[in-house]
Simulated scan of single mutants.
Amino acid sequence: MIKKYTLDSLDADFGTFLLREDESVQLLIPKNLINVHLHEGDIVEIIKTNENYKITLLQCETEEAMAKVSSLLEQLRNK
């Protein structure tokens, strides 16, 4: 099953991903199984296959989410 996640944090051992539809659900993936270069806040699709994960960066969705956050921050600054 394909699910969308946001990369919450990336430390020396694990990436912590939050499920987009319910951010209280976390997925910890060992760093050595993360097959793509990611930054905190990136939105990804994750497919679990046996012992591995197929992680795909959703560049457009990530850019849209960051633009929305930037716009909200700008609105807050201007109040």
Rank of each mutant, 00 (worst) to 15 (best):
L76Q: 14
C60H: 09
Y5V: 01
I29N: 02
M1N: 11
K31L: 14
E51G: 15
S71N: 15
Q75Y: 07
G41E: 07
G15P: 02
V69S: 15
L57V: 00
S24T: 09
S24N: 14
T6I: 10
V36D: 14
K79S: 13
E40I: 01
D13L: 09
A65L: 06
L73G: 15
E63V: 04
N32K: 12
A65G: 05
Y5R: 02
K31Q: 13
E74W: 00
T62D: 08
K3I: 01
D42F: 03
T16C: 09
Q75L: 04
K68S: 10
V36L: 11
Q59C: 04
K54Q: 10
K48P: 02
R20C: 13
K4H: 08
I47D: 09
L7R: 00
E64P: 00
T16F: 08
H37R: 09
F17K: 03
S24P: 09
L58P: 00
G15Y: 03
T49E: 01
L28Q: 14
V44M: 05
M66G: 05
K4N: 09
L7K: 04
L38M: 01
Q75I: 01
L57D: 00
V36A: 09
I55N: 01
S24H: 13
I46M: 03
L72S: 11
P30R: 06
E21Y: 08
L73I: 08
M1Q: 10
V25T: 07
Q26T: 14
V44W: 01
D11E: 08
I2T: 12
K79V: 11
T62A: 04
N32Y: 11
H37S: 14
E74T: 07
L57S: 04
M66L: 10
L19T: 01
L27Q: 05
G15H: 04
R77D: 10
R77Q: 15
K68Q: 15
I55H: 01
A12W: 07
D22S: 08
E40H: 10
L10F: 07
E45M: 06
I47M: 03
I46Y: 05
L33C: 12
T16L: 12
N52F: 07
D42T: 00
E64M: 11
L57I: 04
Q59E: 14
K3R: 10
D42A: 07
L27N: 03
D8N: 15
L57M: 00
L58A: 05
I55T: 02
L72R: 14
V36F: 06
L72E: 14
K3M: 10
Q75P: 05
N35H: 10
N52R: 07
I46W: 02
Q26R: 11
P30V: 03
L28N: 13
F17T: 03
S71C: 06
S24F: 11
Q75E: 15
H39F: 11
L27Y: 05
N35G: 15
A67T: 07
V36Y: 15
A12F: 10
R20N: 06
I47S: 04
L10I: 06
D8Q: 09
R20I: 13
N35E: 15
S71K: 13
E63N: 12
M66P: 04
Q59F: 03
E21V: 00
L27T: 05
L19D: 05
S9Y: 12
L76C: 11
N35R: 08
